[in-house]
């Protein structure tokens, strides 16, 4: 049957388009305008060309924040993806135990970002926090306000606590959708548990894992609230990620021009990563 193409359907999209124009496109255009000017105040501004871009690109604090951000995101992925798949494999697949496990696993996802930060801020304190005291009791000198390594460990554990459940849920959904005959065939062939994982479960999980990697990468790349609450970017600048540096610049120092140039470049990097992930996902699905 010939499919009718009726472009009038586009009119139905207009409300969304107007909404997005107001809350995303217009502000973004303003940021672009700000990025080429020195903003002194309302109505007082001077055109400076690409000076802010040059300054930001060559700023060592921005460069180190960028490297820190990449490292953080990679560590988050390296920890949370295997952890999520591992826990999902252990969860019961049916019955009331399954429902209970899913609810328990999902609880951290319901906690607001700043509350997660506050919980861990107290939990990991070396003098009063349960976790902090426990670690110190084992003889390891652990103080996230003084040692960069401890601060990183705290942030990574906190992020895993908060977001690994998302990976677990995605992987669990992927595992549940594998039809039973695959497992039956594996049993007939006498496949080991490892072989079942390697040749049945892992390939079938590819779709959901790509989504998990994409979501966790994007979220960790844009992380702000939790490190802001727990470490405030310190000690020194050891946990000053891109967004923290950006907010310090825009709100703390009120350098709107440089902050605008910075956020545009931040946006471009995220756009590039998103496109790469999106393309990989599309290629995966086509296969």
């Amino acid at each position: 049957m010939h499919k009718l193409e009726d472009n009038r359907a586009w009119f139905l999209v207009i409300p969304v388009f107007v909404l997005v124009a107001f809350n995303a496109v217009v502000p973004l255009m303003t940021v672009v305008n700000y990025s080429v000017q020195d903003i002194f105040g309302p109505g007082q501004r001077a055109f400076v060309g690409v000076e802010w871009f040059r300054e930001m690109l060559r700023d060592p604090t921005v460069q180190s924040a960028f490297l820190r951000q990449i490292l953080f995101s990679l560590l988050v992925l390296a920890m949370q993806i295997p952890l999520g798949v591992g826990v999902a494999l252990l969860l019961p697949r049916s019955g009331w135990k399954s429902s209970l496990a899913i609810i328990l696993v999902a609880i951290p996802l319901l906690v607001p970002f700043n509350v997660v930060g506050t919980i861990w801020q107290v939990y990991a304190r070396p003098e009063i926090g349960l976790f902090g005291r426990l670690i110190n009791a084992t003889g390891i000198d652990y103080n996230y306000t003084a040692s960069p390594l401890a601060a990183w460990v705290t942030l990574l554990l906190m992020d895993a606590w908060h977001w690994a459940p998302l990976v677990i849920l995605l992987a669990f959904a992927g595992l549940c959708s594998i039809p039973e005959p695959y497992y039956q065939a594996a049993r007939i062939d006498g496949a080991s548990r490892a072989a079942v994982f390697r040749f049945i479960e892992l390939p079938k999980l590819r779709g959901v894992l790509t989504i998990a990697v994409l979501l966790r990468f994007m979220d960790s790349f844009m992380i702000y609230t939790e490190p802001f609450v727990v470490t405030g970017g310190g000690p020194g600048s050891s946990t000053t990620f891109l967004s923290i540096r950006l907010v310090n610049m825009a709100v703390g120092q009120f350098d709107l021009g440089p902050a605008a140039a910075f956020s545009l470049m931040y946006f471009l990097v995220i756009l590039l990563f998103s496109y790469v992930f999106y393309t990989i996902m599309k290629l995966n699905n086509a296969r």
Binding site: M29, T30, V32, N33, V36, Q37, P42
Partner: peptide, 15 residues
Amino acid sequence: LEWMAWTTPTAVFFA
């Protein structure tokens, strides 16, 4: 539109 701080180059860019 003063709050949007338009300049000629950025206007050309968006155009």
